[in-house]
Amino acid sequence: MGRYLLRRLGFALLLVFVVSSSALLLTQLAPGDITSDIALGVDAETRERMRVELGLDRPIAVQYWSWLSGVARLDFGRSLLYSRPVTTLLSERALNTAVLATAAILLATLIGLPLGVYSGSRARGLGPAIVRAISVAGLSVPPLVGSLFLVFIAARTGWLPVGGMTSASGVDMAWGAWLADIGSHMPIPVMALALPLAASLERLQSQAIAGANREPFVAASRARGLTQRESIVRHAWPASLRPVLGLYGVMIGSLFSGSFVVEVVTSWPGLGRLMYDALRARDLYLVAGCAASGAVFLALGTLVADVLLAIADPRVRAEGRS
């Protein structure tokens, strides 16, 4: 297990290095830089002085080396956009994104897995057909449209705040009221993130459970006198989890690194929006930092999914021992 974790850690570090370096270099190579926005309002000399001030006049290799030596000391540089350390910005926004991601994963799991088991263990019938239809619809709707639809519903009904993470009066609230305030802002972005994921989980779980139900050991359990429900819960469902938990690795990685679309549309101040702002402004170091955090979360997500799979599926543990 120790060697396995070490291998995983090495892979994660390599992933972070490759992803953040690529992000930095690609952003550097793309046309324009952070001074482009104001280029029409100032003369060429002023713009050049700004570039010198920001260190953008140096060759790419020098900039990259300077950034890399900082990264070795866990210093991801200073955001050109906000003039603040990238690590400070990342830690602020990562917490906000983590709140959203955790809630979304929980909601997606609570909706997707039971419905997947339900529809996968029944070949025919109106109920599974409705579930399948809703899932396909959920998968087909682009995140932008889904988010805007939910925001529109919230605005139309007035039941929930349309956007943001807290109310303007949030800082003056007591702890309990502040948490309730955040909670009231969460349903729209959480649903926007969770519903497509729930649809994916449902489809995957449904197919996996249908496949597991055809396995001889499940049939044998039924022959031993277990009810259909007992047979599914004890045998078919654990065996069906391998592809489902594989998806969790990607889900955790993508959700915890922030969703561009959902965070922009619902004005949630998370990592996705930070990356969006950084990309639009060509903030090299912030782009690289956001990409690195995404890679860390992806590696962590994969690790968590592997561990969960080992816990859930006895065959994986057996493979590990052999």
Partner: peptide, 20 residues
């Protein structure tokens, strides 16, 4: 005077419509 940061123009419009 409060400036809410709303990056998306459509979401901004919805918030104006909803009175926020």
């Amino acid at each position: 005077v409060i400036f809410e940061v709303v990056p998306d123009q459509n979401a901004e419009l919805v918030r104006l419509q909803s009175g926020q």
